[in-house]
């Protein structure tokens, strides 16, 4: 089961005030007591924009246990804009959201609008670097902003996950969103197509030489 059920249906037409046009991935309603479009996590977004980022997720309100959110409907995207990113090759089993008791701040997959698979299959060691002008970050999701600030210096998807305390599957989705919106550049590791994506001989020789010099 990918996501708990029982929440209100996500209304794709709802927009968060001030949300950037490129960012279509709003939060579904977080608690069952609210109607669609009441984006609880955004109520404190101004804290984030005033430049006082707390610990991971600390600015986020408590999620009510048992509250569900529905899967976000599939939305259009233009793959031709991101030729460097490989389309998803295979459907993996969806990763269930963590129990609220283990993350009292916000359920990890709330950040992704309930999506459990990225649009693109990012390698865990794929490198992420922020290309967006800082002014463009205003109005982005808080998690997207944190990733963009972190990746001003190039980082791997694994580092994004570890340094921001976001589960790996969630980090992949968020980074793929940012790449699609043109806010970060992705450098997928190369590989020899003829050898099933294995590193080519030249790369192996460079790695060997580099290790010997350590």
């Amino acid at each position: 089961m990918a996501t708990p059920t029982g929440g209100h249906p996500y209304n794709g037409d709802q927009r968060v005030p001030g949300e950037h046009g490129d960012n279509r991935f709003g939060f579904p309603a977080a608690s069952g007591g609210q109607g669609p479009g009441q984006y609880q996590p955004y109520q404190q977004q101004e804290h984030q924009q005033q430049g006082a980022p707390g610990g991971p997720g600390s600015e986020w309100p408590q999620q009510q246990p048992g509250a569900g959110w529905p899967q976000q409907p599939q939305q259009r995207h233009d793959t031709s804009q991101q030729p460097r990113i490989q389309p998803v090759q295979q459907r993996r089993a969806p990763e269930p959201a963590k129990p609220a008791a283990h993350n009292p701040l916000v359920r990890p997959y709330a950040m992704t609008g309930g999506r459990t698979r990225p649009r693109y299959q990012l390698a865990i060691e794929a490198l992420v670097s922020t290309t967006a002008d800082p002014a463009r970050l205003q109005g982005q999701l808080p998690e997207h902003q944190r990733i963009c600030r972190l990746c001003i210096e190039i980082k791997s998807v694994a580092e994004v996950s570890a340094l921001l305390s976001i589960p790996l599957g969630v980090a992949r989705i968020l980074v793929a969103d940012l790449a699609e919106a043109g806010l970060v550049a992705i450098h997928q590791p190369g590989g020899d197509e003829a050898a099933g994506g294995q590193p080519d001989v030249t790369l192996l020789e460079r790695v060997l030489s580099g290790l010997r010099k350590l």
């Binding site: 990763e95 269930p96 963590k98 283990h102 694994a158 589960p167």
Partner: peptide, 23 residues
């Protein structure tokens, strides 16, 4: 970093079981 195990494999894991049967 953390990865989330799926329910299929979680059933035989008794070390890091979270109390939720599926994760």
């Amino acid at each position: 970093t953390e990865a989330v195990m799926t329910s299929a494999s979680a059933g035989i894991d008794d070390l890091t079981h979270t109390g939720d049967k599926t994760t």
